[in-house]
Write a protein that binds this DNA or RNA. Structure first.
Length: 267
DNA sequence: ATGGCAGAAGCATTCTGA
């Protein structure tokens, strides 16, 4: 019986973080990794570095902002049917990439989607309305994807803390961006499609986060938020074996402000 | 209410992030 590891990491510029990502792929043994905020046009994506590490890449990037990619370990997974962007949702911002991944050792295909959800700036802002609209479009698109491939993982930087346990200072953040009621309702709409936050399927230490501000020694004082998630569909839930956050790369020199998150699934 | 820090664009300073 083989276990496959699916992961997600907002790297905040792949150009700056390439060595961290290549090292982490090796160290973690991840089979598929969704990247967010690559901030690279597709022609500048470092395909060769990942190919040398044993990974194929599906890229959907743009200059300066946003940009997502999916890295797939060739030894263990065969990728097909890539999707770029939310179907039927024209959007100049490149925030979603996915593919169907079939275990080469045998097993049913898994649809793996990686999303960089809009930040939203602050409740009421134009970018906040775009955030809610973007999630609503994803909610509309998912049922068809689930129909075609019931075993599905939606991972990424959701820019939403699911509960107050996912914020270091719930009182300070209350009603603000990442945890406002409309954002949490939008996340609930995703979960109501049968998806579940894989991290909470298991007992976890208290005060574990996936993002820490670069300022004010936030990481050293563990003042973070958990906004990077891997949601698994109903059909996949019984196959999930473990889930976690690897905070180690956040302690490296010149880190991303996000840590990679992962989930292990029985193939 | 604002700053702090980081990255990109581009060369001073602004935009964005969460």
């Amino acid at each position: 019986m083989t276990t496959l590891t699916f992961a997600s990491w907002n790297v905040n510029s792949l150009k700056v973080r390439l060595a961290h990502v290549v090292d982490w792929l090796e160290r973690s043994g991840a089979d598929a990794l969704a990247l967010q905020e690559t901030k690279l046009v597709d022609s500048a994506f470092p395909r060769d570095a990942f190919a040398e590490a044993g990974f194929d890449a599906f890229v959907f990037g743009q200059k300066t902002y946003n940009g997502v990619a999916l890295l797939v370990r060739r030894e263990t997974l065969a990728a097909s049917d890539p999707v770029y962007g939310i179907p039927d949702y024209p959007d100049p911002q490149r925030r979603l990439v996915g593919a169907t991944l079939t275990p080469k050792a045998g097993g049913e295909p898994i649809r793996f989607l990686g999303g960089y959800f809009p930040n939203g700036a602050e409740p009421g802002a134009a970018r906040y309305l775009y955030k809610l609209d973007w999630i609503a479009a994803l909610v509309r698109a998912l049922p068809e994807m689930l129909r075609v491939t019931p075993r599905l993982i939606l991972g990424g930087d959701f820019n939403i803390a699911p509960t107050d346990a996912d914020l270091y200072d719930p009182e300070g953040w209350a009603g603000g961006i990442l945890c406002s009621a409309p954002e949490r309702r939008a996340l609930e709409a995703l979960l109501s499609l049968g998806l579940v936050d894989s991290y909470r399927l298991f007992a976890q230490p208290e005060r574990t986060y996936s993002w820490w501000d670069y300022r004010r020694k936030a990481f050293e004082e563990n003042k973070g938020v958990r906004i990077d998630l891997l949601l698994v569909s109903e059909a996949l839930r019984a196959a999930v074996r473990a889930a976690g956050i690897d905070a180690a790369p956040r302690a490296l020199a010149q880190p991303s402000d996000h840590a990679p998150v992962w989930v292990k699934v029985q193939a």
